[in-house]
Computed example of a mutant assay.
Amino acid sequence: MRKHTKQAPFCATKLGRALAALPLAALLLGSSVAHAEDKVDTTRIVSVGGDVTEIIYALGEEKHLVARDTTSMFPQEAMKLPDVGYMRALSPEGILALSPTSIIAIEGAGPPEALTVLKSASVPFETVPNAYTRDGILAKIEKVGALLGVNDKAKALEASVSADLDAAIADAGKRAEKDRKRVLFILSLQGGKVMASGTGTAADGIIKLSSAINAAGDFPGYKPLTDEAIIEAKPDVILMMNRGDGASTTNEELLKQPALALTPALQNKAVIRMDGLHLLGFGPRTASAVRELNAAMYGG
């Protein structure tokens, strides 16, 4: 026991000296090799996540795609690819039937049982991190570019998207704090309950990028709001996704909710509906979504 205690600091010291003796070039080479190892076989890619698919198209690498998930609806050409199902309800059998050489999926894809089957197959399954922020978008582009082995293209796209985002965010941020709208994002009306967006969600992220205020408060995720909470929120604007399939909640249905009817938003008929992928996708077009949302909230 005493002998082991004496050796531990000695070994750590020797290891530290060995690392310190390594040439800088060798350390940089190791980092470069690790980055290169991110690349997957791009022969037949299945893309899961509308943002991932958009990035692949924006990089000009769509020729590698053999399928996409239901949320991948932009650009329009993507709709011609086979659909493997909703990103959170994937069918592993359907995906594997396409003989993909790799699967690139956004974080949060599932269900877990499906991922277990896919990861146990002899097909690389790569997850792209997801964060509803400016930097999160750029990180996605970098990761997808590394997986496809097109780092230079990714850097160019990052630079373009970054400049566009910074300009849109700066423009939105010019508005005085007292003039910023309180926005209530409603995901749905379930059983007469308003399902609203709290923190850590894509809706909260786009509201913040647009320099508006999330009227729902600071609870995490999505949850049904009580009538008291809705009235207390005092939203100036109701924000919703435009589903485009005729199944969107109408203004008349919103007005049937007594608490909503009392809000400044509905009293002023300030209901904004935007394409869901454009609004919440957090991909290359997010600067455009910030501008569109600001124009709808403030005019111009």
Rank of each mutant, 00 (worst) to 15 (best):
K223I: 14
K3Y: 00
I230Q: 04
M240N: 10
A270T: 04
L165W: 05
D245S: 13
L65Y: 03
D51Q: 02
Y57N: 03
G276D: 10
N130W: 04
V48P: 08
A25C: 09
G217R: 00
L118H: 07
I137L: 13
S211K: 02
L115A: 10
L138T: 14
D179C: 08
G283W: 02
A154Y: 13
L115I: 07
N251V: 09
K119N: 14
M274D: 11
Y298N: 01
P9M: 00
A67Y: 01
A89M: 09
S288R: 11
D166N: 14
Y132P: 02
P9R: 00
V237W: 04
S120H: 12
S160H: 10
A121T: 04
G108Q: 09
M79S: 04
G16R: 14
L59C: 08
A154Q: 07
M73P: 02
G300E: 01
G136M: 08
L147F: 15
K14M: 15
S122P: 06
T286N: 09
S31K: 06
T71Y: 06
S248I: 06
A212M: 13
A131I: 11
A215S: 12
G136N: 09
A67V: 09
I103S: 13
L98H: 10
L15F: 10
S31G: 06
P129K: 08
G198V: 12
L187E: 02
I186G: 13
F185T: 03
T42A: 13
A212Q: 03
V46Q: 07
S197D: 07
A12R: 06
N294C: 05
A170Q: 11
D69C: 12
R44G: 10
F282M: 04
G217T: 07
L165P: 06
A12L: 15
P224R: 00
L262T: 12
G217K: 01
A168L: 12
L280S: 07
E252D: 15
A146M: 02
F282D: 12
T199K: 02
A289G: 13
K143D: 09
R134S: 11
A229V: 11
A176D: 04
H64R: 05
